[in-house]
Design a protein around this nucleic acid. Sequence first.
DNA 1: CCCATGACTGCAAATATATTGCATTCGCAA
DNA 2: TTGCGAATGCAATATATTTGCAGTCATGGG
Lengths: 144, 144
Amino acid sequence: MNAAADTFRRLGRPATRGRGEVLRILSESPIPLSPREILERIPEPRPDASTVYRSLSLMISLGLVRSVALHERSRRYEAVTEGTHRHRVVCRGCGRIESFQPKKCDLSRIENDIRGALGFDVSDHSLEFFGACAECGRKKGRGR
Amino acid sequence: MNAAADTFRRLGRPATRGRGEVLRILSESPIPLSPREILERIPEPRPDASTVYRSLSLMISLGLVRSVALHERSRRYEAVTEGTHRHRVVCRGCGRIESFQPKKCDLSRIENDIRGALGFDVSDHSLEFFGACAECGRKKGRGR
DNA sequence: CCCATGACTGCAAATATATTGCATTCGCAA
DNA sequence: TTGCGAATGCAATATATTTGCAGTCATGGG
């Protein structure tokens, strides 16, 4: 009856509460979260921060979670969802983060170029956009 | 006679040695470097680490340098060079980093989609590829 | 349902990374 | 050469992440 817990059991890992909460929180969040944000969202009794880090690193090795780098001091994490591919859009003015599901993400041409030029076999990519959100763009636009 | 120093003077900033070294090192490096790597490459007498961090943050605000996030513990930095646009390719096997100059980086369509869907005005993007380099791919390929 | 066992957790300490206050020194222009 | 504001060194502090270890929990077997 608990999706996160089942996921762990299926993978042969004990389904502990902290671990389940981390995965649930990431699955429910529309944007990637930092370890600190994840911790803050776990209802009491809250696990230790080290448990959150250990959970994240386990889930990454199980392929349940991936990291997202938005050029901040700490990395963020998101749940891996089958069949979705998202890019992040970050506002330089207010820090707002949004996810964007591209109509069609075709970087395969670039990936082929890379294979040809460097012999690298690309399995994955990470694409983030930076700029001004509607609100901040408006603010800056009208004088300031 | 010193390109880095001139750059700072032109921008009305004192051209100090540490600062110049940081910019020179980044300009000469084919791959983005972490603050620690930058510091290690400055010849004696080496400035304090805080000077390197302060230099980087100044240069970012001056637009001379930008950060590159390769999902590591610390960010990396690279010199901004007029007219070049590069992507990074990182090997998950050995950590090797290479830069790749795309024949044509056309993400403007995606950027337009973003403007339409989210109202975000994109000014910039960051694109990194992950996979296996020629050597690591070969290793894994022939049995391991 | 209870037990054995390995996996996981909390806690505290260690490390790594980044930032800041302050007194001193440096770079630059007059 | 001198004066001033900017930059630096140093030490302290903040933040992020990792690790050792002893106690606890989750799961499968009986």
